[in-house]
Write a protein that binds this DNA or RNA. Structure first.
Lengths: 93, 93
DNA sequence: AGTATAAGCAAGTAACCACTTGCCTATCAA
DNA sequence: TTGATAGGCAAGTGGTTACTTGCTTATACT
């Protein structure tokens, strides 16, 4: 789907995926503080939340609400279609 | 590079890559007519040329000028970094 | 030399998108 | 029940970007 390409076209969203690869099942606040500390992302909570909306629409992140916390889980499988669509050859074509 | 993600974030540019996968070494005019016929892309020559600029900056397309023709070649290798950055797992994480 | 074809350059425009701001809802603890 | 924490909703704004328009350059053909 086109959503996947749009999702990874933004630097902050790529940092979110990086952070979720390092540590999965994070809440919004956890993500915000760890993005600021480890990935030099200065976006506000609302901005990060909107990015997570985009990542969820692309199927790259799943949300699971427990109590007052919402945990975010990464799912890299939608990225497979990229390598399938344009197979990577060793030498330049 | 960030340019690769930006490059494939646009539907028309993805169609250009699709078309170059089908038939490599096309000129700008060839690309324009084949995009219109086979990929329902209605963009003008200048628009396609600007898209090729972006794809070239991302290293996904190389240009080779011979006489009055400029041939465009696809190089999918920059896409490999995507799968490397977020490895694809079979089951959801 | 003159014309046609292939393509580059550059400014202007309109739509999109990331981000902010302000307010609201829900859950939990004291 | 009151306050604090975690998060959602929605409108407005500024910057980016895809696209058009018009002009220019370069190569090839007659």
């Amino acid at each position: 789907m086109a959503d996947v390409f749009k999702a990874i076209s933004d630097e902050t969203r790529r940092a979110i995926l990086d952070e979720l690869i390092e540590r999965d099942e994070q809440t919004l606040f956890e993500l915000c503080s760890r993005l600021a500390m480890r990935h030099a992302v200065t976006s506000s909570r609302q901005a990060v939340s909107q990015h997570l909306d985009v990542l969820e629409a692309a199927g790259l992140v799943r949300r699971e609400k427990r109590g007052r916390y919402t945990f975010h889980t990464i799912d890299t499988r939608p990225l497979a279609q990229i390598a399938e669509r344009w197979p990577i050859t060793e030498a330049p074509q």
